[in-house]
Simulated assay, not measured.
Amino acid sequence: MSESSPEQNGDSTKANFEPHQLHLHNQTEIEQRIAAQEMRKLKAKSEKHHTIWFGLGMFGLIGWSVTVPAVAGAIIGMWIDSRWPSRYSWSLMLLIGGICLGCFNAWKWLHKEGNIES
C-alpha cells in the first residue's frame, strides 16, 4: 500500500474540475445566499408595521375570519333544521362548510399580507 496520492501514482481518476474552481463555485453560491438573507433583513427592518401589535392583530383577524363563517353556518343550519326537518343535519353540514370557507379566507389573506408566492 502506497501512502502517495493518486496524482503521484499516475492514476487518471482526476475530477473534471480543479479544487479551486469548486471553491469559487461554492463561494459564489454562499455569497448569493448571504446577499438574499441581508436583503430580507433590510426589508424587514424598513417595514415599521410589523410589531408585536401587528402580530397580535393578525392573530385576531385570522381567528375572526374562521369563527364568523363557522358560527354563521351553524346558525343558518339550525334555522333550516327547525323549519324543514330532514334526516340530514344542516347545522353540521353548514358548520363544516363555514369552517372550510373561513380557513380558505384566512389562507388567502395570509398569502396576500405576507407577500408569499406559491
Rank of each mutant, 00 (worst) to 15 (best):
E31A: 09
M58P: 02
E31M: 05
F104M: 06
T51Q: 06
L95V: 02
G98M: 13
S12V: 09
S65P: 02
I30G: 08
E18L: 15
A70C: 03
N9L: 15
L56K: 09
D81K: 08
K112W: 10
N26H: 15
N115P: 01
M39P: 07
A70T: 07
S89A: 03
K112A: 11
L22H: 05
M1T: 14
D11R: 13
G98C: 09
N115S: 08
W90G: 01
N115L: 14
Q27M: 14
S2V: 12
F59S: 00
T28K: 13
F17L: 04
Q32G: 14
G77C: 09
S91K: 12
I34F: 10
C100Y: 11
W64Y: 08
L56I: 04
K48G: 03
G63P: 01
H25L: 13
V71E: 01
F54E: 03
L94H: 05
S2E: 10
H111I: 05
P6L: 04
I116R: 11
I30P: 01
T67V: 01
S118W: 09
Q32I: 07
K41Y: 08
K45T: 04
L61M: 06
K45R: 11
E31N: 12
S4G: 06
N115Q: 09
G55T: 09
H49R: 11
L42C: 02
G98I: 15
G77N: 09
G73A: 03
Q37I: 00
G55H: 14
V68W: 12
S89Y: 13
S12G: 10
H23W: 13
W64P: 00
P69R: 06
K45P: 00
H111M: 11
L110Q: 14
L61E: 07
E3M: 09
W79M: 15
A35E: 13
P19K: 00
A44N: 03
T51L: 08
S118D: 08
W84T: 10
T28S: 11
K14N: 08
V66Y: 04
S86P: 02
T67Q: 03
G10D: 13
M78P: 01
G60Y: 00
G77K: 10
G98W: 13
E29T: 11
G77D: 11
S65N: 07
E38H: 05
V71L: 05
C103I: 09
E47F: 03
H49I: 01
I99S: 00
T13P: 00
M93P: 00
P85A: 03
